[in-house]
């Protein structure tokens, strides 16, 4: 059980916060000539280092704007870190921003292939699991309807069903997934807990301390982009309680 599956080393993420966003050639030239081009640098993450072994469940705590979501996106590969490295092994199921690859004009079925491809599934895999995905999302009657006619709950259900069809080695969870109505919520929570039981590595972001304690064995606290505490979940949770008063 001592196999390292995630290694985050000295990761820093810098954003340029322009006072006004310059995104046209005209503005750019004018500002360049007037020497008004200025960038305010802002480090959303700085010196983040930690490693996870197979089966670790890491809770990420922190106030709004502490850099939690940015960290998840760096780990998922959406952001390339400005400095430092992220090494990752195995299949990742990013349960953040479900349905990010959806196209509203596309039907449910077409979106399953599109989103599946984006998530890294092969065509064969989707072919073999498509019935299961449709069944789990309970959208059989709507699967050939363009997504723009779906309710937001239906879209979320479809996204959840596609993202959780794999047997991942690592899952990234952002907040509590409140997907669909009460019935589907129960079903999705059960599915998640089943996935957790298979010994996957978990990264879990939440404000809900009770939930983090229940799910995770390790935790870190982020404050202004830096790790201020890390270690056993009980200790870190205590610290977080003190911090938030």
């Amino acid at each position: 059980m001592s196999e390292e599956v995630l290694k985050v080393e000295n990761v820093g993420m810098k954003f340029n916060l322009n006072k006004e966003k310059v995104d046209s050639l005209k503005e750019y030239v004018i500002k360049l000539l007037r020497r008004e081009l200025q960038y305010n640098e802002f480090w959303a993450l700085k010196d983040i280092s930690f490693t996870l072994e197979k089966g670790d469940r890491l809770g990420i705590l922190g106030l709004n704007g502490a850099g939690k979501s940015t960290l998840l996106k760096v780990i998922a590969g959406v952001f390339r870190p400005t400095e430092g490295t992220v090494e990752r092994k195995g299949v990742l199921a990013p349960l953040i921003e479900l349905g990010a690859g959806f196209d509203m004009q596309y039907t449910g079925k077409e979106n399953i292939y599109l989103y599946g491809a984006v998530l890294g599934y092969s065509r064969k895999f989707i072919d073999s699991r498509i019935d299961e995905i449709i069944a789990f999302s309970e959208l059989k009657d709507f699967i050939d309807v363009p997504l723009k006619n779906y309710s937001s709950g239906m879209k979320a259900r479809l996204g959840f069903a596609i993202a959780t069809i794999v047997e991942p080695d690592m899952i990234i969870l952002d907040e509590v997934l409140s997907v669909g109505d009460a019935k589907f919520k129960k079903k999705s929570e059960k599915k998640l807990l089943d996935m957790l039981d298979t010994g996957v590595t978990v990264l879990f972001v939440s404000h809900n301390l009770a939930q983090v304690k229940k799910i995770c064995n390790k935790a870190i606290i982020l404050e202004k982009g830096k790790i201020v505490a890390k270690g056993n979940v009980e200790e870190v949770a205590k610290k977080y309680e003190e911090m938030t008063g």
């Binding site: 196209d103 004009q105 077409e110 599109l114 491809a117 092969s122 065509r123």
Partner: peptide
């Protein structure tokens, strides 16, 4: 292979949606 699959899905999407409406 995966990138080729994504590419073919994106190409298909473009062709299908261009004249769908």
């Amino acid at each position: 292979l995966q990138n080729r699959f994504i590419l073919s899905e994106l190409v298909k999407k473009g062709i299908r949606l261009k004249y769908r409406r």
